[in-house]
Amino acid sequence: MSPSSPPPTDRSGPSEQTRKADRERDGETSADAKPRRDPSRTAGSLSGDADQVPSPADLDALAAWVDTQLAEDGVENEHFLQEVDRIRNELAPRTPSPPPVRAPEHGRRPEWSEELPEESDGPDRWGAPSPYLEERLNIARSAAARLAREAERAGSDVSGLKAHLETIDRELGRASAELDFVRANGRSEKDLDTPHSPVAASLSPPARAGTEGPPAMAPVTGTYEDFTVARYNYTVSALHRRRRSLGWGTVVVAVGISALLLVLTLRAHEPAPPIWLAGLPLVWMIPVPFFVAAFRGTQRVLKENRLELPEAT
C-alpha cells in the first residue's frame, strides 16, 4: 500500500455507519499528527503505480476520505456523490453476498438469517478472482482520478466563492448606504448610473486589486467609508447653488432685525443714560469688522473657487 493512501477500514464494505465512525475517528486524530491528505497524491498512487494495485478497501477508504472532505468543506456536490456511488457499485460484486434466500416454508424464518457470515480477508473464502477484476479496477482508478481532480477544483472554488461572497456582502452594504443617502437627498435612482456611482468606482480593476475589508466598526455616525467624492460633490454643489441666496438673505434678514430693534428702541422713549454708560454698547461694535470680513470672504471664496471634484470612473 502506498504511504499516501487512505488507511484501511472495515473490509466488509463501508456502510454509512462505518464511514461515520471513520469520520469521527479521523476528526479525533486529525489534530494529533495525521496530515490532511492530498487527493491528487492519493489518486496518483492508485492510478499511476501498476505494481501497487489498490485493494477494494483502499478504494472504500478513498470514498470515505472524500466524504469526510466534503463534509468538512460543507460541499454538497452531486457529481461527487455519483462518483462515490459509482466506485461503490464497482466494488460491490467483490463483497460476498449471502446465499439466495428462499421463501420460508410454512411461515418460519430461516435460522441463518440472524447470523452474518464471518469476515475473511483471504481469497480462499471468495474463490478465484473475477476475470473482470482488472477492468473494474481500471474503471475505479480513472474514477478516483477524476474524483481527485474534482475535489481539488471544488476546494479552490469554495475559497473563491467565499471571497466573492464577502465582496458582494460588503458592496451591498455600501450600495445600500449610498441609496439611502441618495433617497434622503431627493435624487432619483436612475441618476445612479454605474460610472458615477462610488460603489462602481470602488470596483474598478485597479482599485479592486489588493482590496481588504475595513475593520469592523460600530454603526455610529460618520464612518470613513461614507466619505465619498459623490457625497462631497453633492454637499459643495448645494453650497455653491445657494451662495447668492445666502448673501442676499443675510443682508435682508440683518436689515430687518436691525430695523425692528431700531423701532423698538425709539418707541421705548427711555431717558438718556448716564454718560459713563455711553461707551458700553460700543463693545458690540468690536467684532463688526470681523463679521463683515468673514461674510465677504465666504462669498468670495465660493465665487472664485469651484470646489467640486471629478468623480472616479
Binding site: 443675510t250 434678514v253 440683518a254 436689515v255 430687518g256 432685525i257 436691525s258 430695523a259 425692528l260 430693534l261 431700531l262 458690540w284 461694535m285 467684532p287 463688526v288 463679521f291 463683515v292 468673514a294 461674510f295
Partner: peptide
C-alpha cells in the same frame, strides 16, 4: 444697525 448683521451671521 449692526446688531442684526452679527446675529444673522
Amino acid at each position: 444697525v449692526f446688531t442684526g448683521f452679527i446675529w444673522v451671521s
